[in-house]
Computed example of a mutant assay.
Amino acid sequence: MAPAAIPTLRVEREFLADAPMMLACDEVGRGALAGPVTIGLVLIDSGVRRMPAGLRDSKLLSEPRREAMAPRAATWVRASAVGEATAAEIDELGIMACLGLAGARAFAELSAANELIADVPLLLDGNHDWLSASIERRARVVTRVKADRDCASVAAASVIAKVHRDRFMRRMHDERPLYAWDENKGYSSRAHFAAIAEHGPSELHRTTWLHEQTQPAPTLFDLSVG
């Protein structure tokens, strides 16, 4: 198996050659059956230093490594924020609208605590800009496929968001230990579907999604890392 790609600051340095600061963004929880969709947003500037050793896209780190990395990632960047949209909002508005809603909440939190330049560049993982309209184009969003794998700032955003969401799902498991959320974090698994069949959905489940999926698709990897 090939070693995991190591993110760098190459892309960020290109942005920071023309701007004194930039933002980076990633989402987690898009494909879950239960729980919120969560957006991580970080701010870095031209004084950014070498990334923490071991920083990777959250999907490439084990849960213990993510937990250890999250505070290091948060102190490495100049500032960070997390925004969420609930399962009920996803049922009402749809997942794409809720990506924008959660992103707007993260942007509002970060911009309230930090003075951002006009037209601040924002590096967004993926190939679709679901954020610009929700933040009223207050940032210049640039999409990049595999940015969470290749760009250190986006990897930091992904780790911060993933650990934040996982901790929430573990707390929810402690309150209602029926669905093994401490293990699956709300993602599809045979045990999760079996628990839903036995106990019915909870208020954290995306009920519109459950109507579309009656059993999990076979998988060779752990869906809870996405």
Rank of each mutant, 00 (worst) to 15 (best):
V163I: 10
L23N: 08
C151Q: 12
R165N: 10
A5E: 10
A217P: 06
R72S: 02
S153Q: 01
K185D: 05
D222G: 09
D18N: 11
T143G: 12
D129P: 10
A68V: 02
A156T: 00
F193Q: 15
E12M: 02
G226L: 14
V141C: 14
R140V: 08
I196K: 02
E67F: 14
A87R: 07
A19V: 01
R49V: 08
G103W: 02
P216R: 05
S153K: 00
L210K: 00
R138Y: 08
L101F: 11
S202C: 14
A85C: 09
C25F: 14
L124K: 02
R206V: 01
L123T: 00
R105E: 13
G83V: 12
V77I: 04
G54E: 01
L210D: 05
F107M: 03
L60F: 03
R167M: 11
E115R: 11
V48E: 08
A53H: 06
R165H: 13
L55P: 01
R170A: 13
A87D: 07
A108W: 02
L41Y: 09
E136C: 05
H205N: 07
S202P: 15
I196D: 03
M21E: 15
K146D: 15
S202K: 07
P71W: 09
R170Y: 04
H192W: 09
F15S: 01
A104M: 07
S202R: 03
G126M: 12
E92I: 00
R56G: 00
D91Q: 03
E203T: 11
A195S: 12
V145S: 14
D150F: 05
R176T: 14
G35M: 03
E136G: 04
T38I: 12
W209E: 06
I135L: 10
L131A: 03
L101G: 05
P71T: 06
S202G: 15
A217Y: 10
P36S: 07
R170D: 06
E183F: 05
A113G: 12
A53K: 04
M51W: 03
G200Q: 10
P201H: 14
S202Y: 14
T207D: 13
G186C: 14
